[in-house]
Structure formats: structure tokens, C-alpha cells
Design a binder for these strands. Structure first.
Length: 595
RNA sequence: GUACCCGUAGCUCAAUUGGAUAGAGUGUCUGGCUUCGGACCAGAAGGUUGCAGGUUCGAGUCCUGCCGGGUACACCA
């Protein structure tokens, strides 16, 4: 994590410290030389709290960075009133140390006062970002790949909101095309008027089963593919019977998918249905053709993308009908008409890297207003036990079944720990834990990585996992609940009337200060996660924080300490709990006070 | 064939966007509850960062060429 001179939004402590460091440097080397300097964190906190690498200065002064660091450490004179209390050169680095009690006061007080707004900033003030994510097909239930999309979409939305943006969460429903016709055809042949209700099957699974069935039928009789295409033609012509069936099966699929969304805790502000506009967009292309932005090749309209270093792309068939990209272009305009976003982010699998680049290039040619602010958040596939996951192969790796299976394991674990819990509470906790484990596991990876997922091996509840963080939170709450000093718990939030009374000099052990310093990084983590649209940055940070907390926990008693230390440490662990709760919330993970 | 992504400890992944001794989890081994929740903590072992060059004060990170894996390149959706 790097701080630059111009960096405006930090927490109060970091802001003061960085400002002071640059003030001190200014006196010694002059304003001119400050420009390119960066302050970073050292690899180990024993080395210092902030570091100035002196390589840039070496060029300016034509001296070795080691000499420069030594000179600076000699020449800089500290003020008594500041946050910085010590400077030490080490090789080409100049290390700054902060005052412990001042740091503790600034950091903990800010966390306490900002409550659940802690870490938020206003970078995105007055800016709207639309995030399109999930985009399911209506022929089958959501599978693991979808869950990666959903968790990413949700968390990125949350993180951007914390960075001050207004976020619109949109979902494109792919509700037409050959895939749904396949399910429909299989249902026509084998359905016998069965319904999800009559069969007691969740409605999207009901539809998905016929999609799988189609595959079986096709193996017996390859000709059936043609029948499906015929069905699609009838659908496009508006055949009433076909439309009725389509509506029925679609509503089953969609309501089932929405149920799953609710279960995994994601939602949307706006749904777009492909069937509403799959033929539109023609006019936009034709207008572009008239303006000579595109060319014609054997009657079809073609976009020349050479200057973008991309393969050319057809935009309309020679018979004048729309292609998939045509509706993509239309949808972009529609989004702008609906919300006028400043930025649009598509969360789509990496297999569409090329087509997304082409889409953005074409929109750029069309001078679409947001074209230059559109981005594709690309993520890799999830393989399950070696095989790429596809519902048509009948592998049961859909989200619903996976969660049900994992819940069983979590319930067993909870019962082991707490034998008196009633069934309902066991189930409630199991759900939160399992979702925490799955979300954290998926978000901890870099999005680009292909994930090899093995339900039994991959998901554990110990180590660097979601439940570990949830446990950390519950553990802290446990301590606070047993305390009697200055804290009250009400409605899952904490209130304290006398932070002012806390003696911050009591927090001077290394275990205390490590924890405090780590807490001070939180706002910068949120900023970074937002800039990169990358929840993994936050996930890694939370783990680091929890680990440092546990180290503290095992060597520093809270409740058994003398009154003043107890009070100070209670405030400290309360702050840790606040940050963990807030951080997990931005990852879409729930916390609970007992687990 | 062309483009993009990936290759780091036995396994799964990190690495402050070019910076200090490449770190975690897991697995293996050793320790730690009459003391705030053991879903925990402390420690040991484990590495030629796929290979070969190059760029510079400095490369896991950037450039070139190989090797291996994945994905995408329709007047499909």
C-alpha cells in the first residue's frame, strides 16, 4: 500500500503522520524534491511505521540512496508536538516511528466515533456506477460459476458504495434463445403437465432437469436439435402456444433463481430482460453506417476494429437482422437512458474478454457517452474436481445443492460445541457460517485465477477462512459482554459514553500497538479495493488483522487487567470488532455474536 | 495459426503494482487451556519464483524467445 503526496483521504492518524513527514522533508530537501516521493509501509513493523525509500532522491541529488538516508536522518529535526517520535536510516530507507499513545488515541477514537461508517470516503461523490452482474440463463439453476459472479458483484458494489459512489446493481436475464427452447421441447415431450409444485421440486431445478433431459433425448436422436430450432422460430414469430409455455417455464426458472439470490444474500436494483430488446439496436447500427463509421461486406454490416488492434466484428446480418452484439450495444444505450451512469462495469467471465473489448471499441466508434468509462471485470472459471462444470452433464454443483451439503457439515460442528442449542438456531448459524466460508474462499482468490474447487477439500472452517473471521468477531463480543466497564451492547451496536476517559498510554505493549497500527490501515484498504474493484485486498487485510488480534489475545489479558488497562483494551478490541464487522459486510459476509 | 490469461513451498494461494530476508493457509513434526470461546496460539521443516536471455541502483513483477496449462477468435447465443 502506498501513500502519495497528493493523497487526500486517509484516516486522521495517517493523514497527520504523512503530512508531518512531508513537512519535515520539506525543510531539509525543499518542495521541488518532494513531488515524486512515496511513503510506504515497511515489511516488518519492527523496522518502523512508515518508510521513505530514497531511490528517487538518489537520482535528483546524484548520491547513493544509502548516503541520502543517512543524511536525512541526521538533518531532520523532530517537533515535540508531532506524531512522529523517531527517525532511523537503514540502508537506502528512511524509517519513521510514531508515538504509541498518540496513535492509539487518534485511531481508536475515530473508529469509535464513525461507528458503522468507518473507513468510508467520498471519492465517488456525485458519481454513479452501474454494475451489471450475474446475468443468468433461464434454463437451469445457478451453479458455482454464477456464485463467483454474484459474490464479486455484490462485494464490489458494497466497496464502491463505501467509496462514496452511487451504485446501481443491474442484472441481465438471458431469457430467450435456443437454450430455453431445449428445456421447453423436453418438457413438451416428457412433461405430462407436471409442475414444480406437483413434483415438489424447486422451480429452477425443475426447468433445469428438462434441460438435462433434452441432452439425453438428443443422444438417442440427434434430429431433435432441429425441433428445438423450430421451436425458437415459432417463438420469434409469436406463436401463442409456444409463448405460453415459454412464459410458464421462464417464470419457474426466474423465481427459483431469485430465491437462490435471496438465500445467498444478493439483490438487484434493475432487471433487464433480453426478450424485451433482442431485436433492437438496428437503428443505432444503421445510423452509424450512414455516418460511415461502419462498412458493408456482402450486405452485412461490419465494424473495422484494426485501429483498436482487435478482429473485425459483424454487427448486422446481410438480411438486416440483429446479432447478439447488436442487442449488447442497444442495452448500453438503454442503461444510459435509464440511469445516466458515469461508469459501467460488466462482471462477466474471462471467456468473453475479446467480445467485451470489441463491444467497448464499437461503442467508442459510435461515440457513446460512457464508452471510455466502461470496463469488464473479468473472472476465471471454476472447475470442479478437474471437470469444467456444466449443468447439462448433470453434475450436481449447483449453488442450492452445494449449500445444503455444506450446511450439514457446519451443523455437526456447531452441535459439537453447543449441545443445548435448538434446531432452528443451529440452522441459522450454519447458514451464516457456510455462506461466510464460501464467499470468503471465492473472494480471497484473485478474480483472474481459474479455481479448482473440491467441495470437500476446498472449504474448511479453520485457518484463513470466513468462519475464522466470524469467530474472531464472536470471541471479541464474548469478552465485551462479560465486561462491566463503560460498554453497553444494544441492537448489535455498541455505545460508550466515556471514551474520553480512556488512558491511551496503557496501550503500549507491542501486541497493543501492532493491533492499533493495523487498524489504522483500514480506510486505505477500502480505497484500494475500490480503485481496483478487488475485494481480495480487503479479504487479505481482514485476515491479517484477525491474526494480529489472536496474537494479542493469547498474551494480553483484557478482563483480568487493572481497571485502566482493562478499559483501554476493551476499547481496542471493540475497535477490532467494528472493523471486522464492517469489512466482512463489504465482502457480503454476515457476523454473529455467538457461533 | 493469432490474441488474451495463468505457471511461486507436497497441495491451494499471497507478495505494498519495480523495492528491505519471496509470505500465508493446508498437510507433516513439536509445544500451549485449574487463566477473557482450542473454529485459537507459539515454533520447526519445506524455494534455482517453468526455462533462457535482456532492461537498471534493484526483477516473482517490465521486454524478447522458448516450454507447459487454460480461454477466445462465426452473418452462433
Amino acid at each position: 500500500m502506498q501513500y502519495k503526496l497528493n493523497s487526500k483521504i486517509e484516516n486522521k492518524f495517517t493523514y497527520l503522520a504523512i503530512k508531518e513527514i512531508f513537512g519535515l522533508l520539506n525543510k531539509v530537501i525543499g518542495k521541488k524534491n518532494l513531488k515524486e516521493l512515496e511513503i510506504i509501509y515497511p515489511p516488518e513493523r519492527e523496522m518502523g511505521d512508515f518508510v521513505l525509500p530514497c531511490f528517487v532522491l538518489a537520482k535528483n541529488f546524484k548520491k547513493s540512496p544509502i548516503e541520502i538516508a543517512a543524511e536525512l536522518s541526521k538533518n531532520i529535526k523532530l517537533k515535540n508536538s508531532g506524531v512522529i517520535c523517531k527517525i532511523k536510516n537503514q540502508g537506502p530507507y528512511l524509517n519513521f516511528f510514531v508515538k504509541n499513545n498518540r496513535t492509539a488515541e487518534l485511531v481508536l477514537r475515530e473508529i469509535f466515533l464513525k461507528k458503522d461508517k468507518i473507513g468510508e470516503n467520498k471519492i465517488g461523490k456525485d458519481k454513479k456506477i452501474m454494475i451489471e452482474y450475474l446475468s443468468p440463463n433461464t434454463n437451469k439453476p445457478l451453479h458455482l460459476g454464477h456464485s463467483r459472479n454474484a459474490f464479486l458483484g455484490w462485494s464490489v458494489s458494497k466497496i464502491l458504495q463505501a467509496n462514496g459512489y452511487k451504485v446501481i446493481k443491474a442484472c441481465l436475464i438471458n431469457d430467450r434463445g435456443i437454450h430455453i427452447c431445449k428445456s421447453m421441447l423436453a418438457y413438451q415431450k416428457m412433461g405430462n403437465k407436471k409442475t414444480p409444485k406437483s413434483e415438489k421440486i424447486k422451480s429452477d431445478h425443475f426447468v433445469g432437469d428438462y434441460y438435462v433431459l433434452f441432452d439425453k433425448l438428443q443422444n438417442e436422436n440427434p434430429e431433435i436439435e432441429k425441433e428445438a430450432q423450430e421451436l425458437l422460430r415459432k417463438w420469434e414469430k409469436g406463436d401463442k402456444k409456444v409463448l405460453t409455455l415459454w412464459k410458464k417455464m421462464n417464470s419457474w426458472a426466474i423465481s427459483g433463481i431469485k430465491e437462490t439470490c435471496k438465500e445467498i444474500g444478493v439483490s438487484f436494483d434493475k432487471f433487464y430482460f433480453e426478450s424485451d430488446f433482442y431485436k433492437k439496436g438496428k437503428n443505432i447500427i444503421l445510423k452509424g453506417l450512414k455516418q460511415k463509421k461502419f462498412t458493408k461486406e456482402e450486405g452485412a454490416v461490419l465494424a473495422d476494429l484494426k485501429k483498436y488492434n482487435l478482429p473485425n466484428k459483424f454487427l448486422l446480418r446481410s438480411d438486416g437482422t440483429a446479432l447478439y452484439i447488436t442487442q449488447d450495444i442497444y442495452l448500453s444505450y438503454l442503461k444510459y437512458k435509464d440511469y445516466e451512469p458515469n461508469k459501467i462495469i460488466h462482471i462477466i467471465g474471462s471467456e468473453q474478454d475479446l467480445s467485451q473489448k470489441q463491444l467497448f471499441a464499437i461503442l467508442d466508434i459510435l461515440k457513446f457517452k460512457v464508452a471510455k468509462n466502461m470496463s469488464h471485470l473479468s473472472y476465471g472459471m471454476i472447475n470442479v474436481e478437474g471437470g469444467k462444470l456444466k449443468s447439462r452433464e448433470g453434475v450436481k454443483v449447483d449453488v442450492d445443492n452445494l449449500l445444503a451439503e455444506l450446511k450439514g457439515e457446519a451443523e455437526a460442528e456447531i452441535k459439537k460445541r453447543n449441545k443445548k442449542l435448538n434446531k432452528k438456531e443451529v440452522e441459522r448459524r450454519a447458514k451464516i457460517i457456510v455462506l461466510g466460508a464460501l464467499k470468503y474462499y471465492i473472494l480471497l482468490y484473485g478474480a483472474k485465477n481459474t479455481v479448482n474447487f473440491n467441495p470437500k477439500k476446498s472449504l474448511s472452517f479453520t485457518g484463513n477462512t470466513g468462519p475464522y473471521l466470524q469467530y474472531t468477531y464472536a470471541r471479541i463480543i464474548g469478552i465485551i459482554q462479560k465486561s462491566d466497564v463503560g460498554f453497553q451492547i444494544s441492537d448489535f451496536r455498541f455505545q460508550i459514553s466515556d471514551v474520553v476517559d480512556v488512558d491511551f498510554s496503557k496501550l503500549s505493549d507491542v501486541a497493543d500497538t501492532n493491533l492499533i497500527f493495523e487498524l489504522s490501515k483500514f480506510s486505505n484498504v477500502i480505497k484500494q479495493a475500490g480503485e481496483n474493484c478487488d475485494p481480495s485486498i480487503l479479504a487479505k487485510y481482514l485476515y491479517e488483522l484477525a491474526k494480529i488480534f489472536h496474537n494479542f489475545y493469547h498474551q494480553s489479558p483484557v478482563l483480568q487487567s487493572d481497571k485502566e488497562t482493562k478499559k483501554a483494551r476493551l476499547l481496542l478490541i471493540f475497535s477490532v470488532a467494528q472493523i471486522i464487522k464492517k469489512g466482512l459486510e463489504l465482502l457480503g459476509i454476515e457476523t454473529m455474536e455467538e457461533m
